[in-house]
């Protein structure tokens, strides 16, 4: 699972997909996750990173990350190479 390579993500949480022309905005947790995904981190690694930084438990976070990735897939921002 990879974030599409051409996609531009800024630190401010603005995402631009040059292939579709669509832009998106992210909240801070979303920005962080998408940047970790871009660094090829696994979901487990992302979870550890977020839990160490934010006031959230594993169960809640796992549920939210799965849902978030589903949204990214819907927007065609993720290449699934499984």
């Amino acid at each position: 699972m990879n974030i599409n390579r051409n996609i531009a993500i800024s630190d401010t949480g603005f995402v631009f997909d040059p292939s579709s022309g669509d832009s998106y905005s992210l909240n801070p947790v979303g920005t962080e996750i998408i940047q970790l995904l871009k660094k090829q981190k696994t979901i487990e690694e992302i979870q550890v990173e977020i839990v160490s930084k934010y006031e959230v438990d594993d169960v809640q976070l796992e549920k939210d990350i799965i849902d978030f990735i589903l949204t990214l897939e819907q927007y065609n921002l993720i290449e699934n190479n499984e």
Partner: peptide, 11 residues
Amino acid sequence: DIAEFEQLSTF
């Protein structure tokens, strides 16, 4: 430029 749109949309 898209940067202007980004600036407005983000801030």
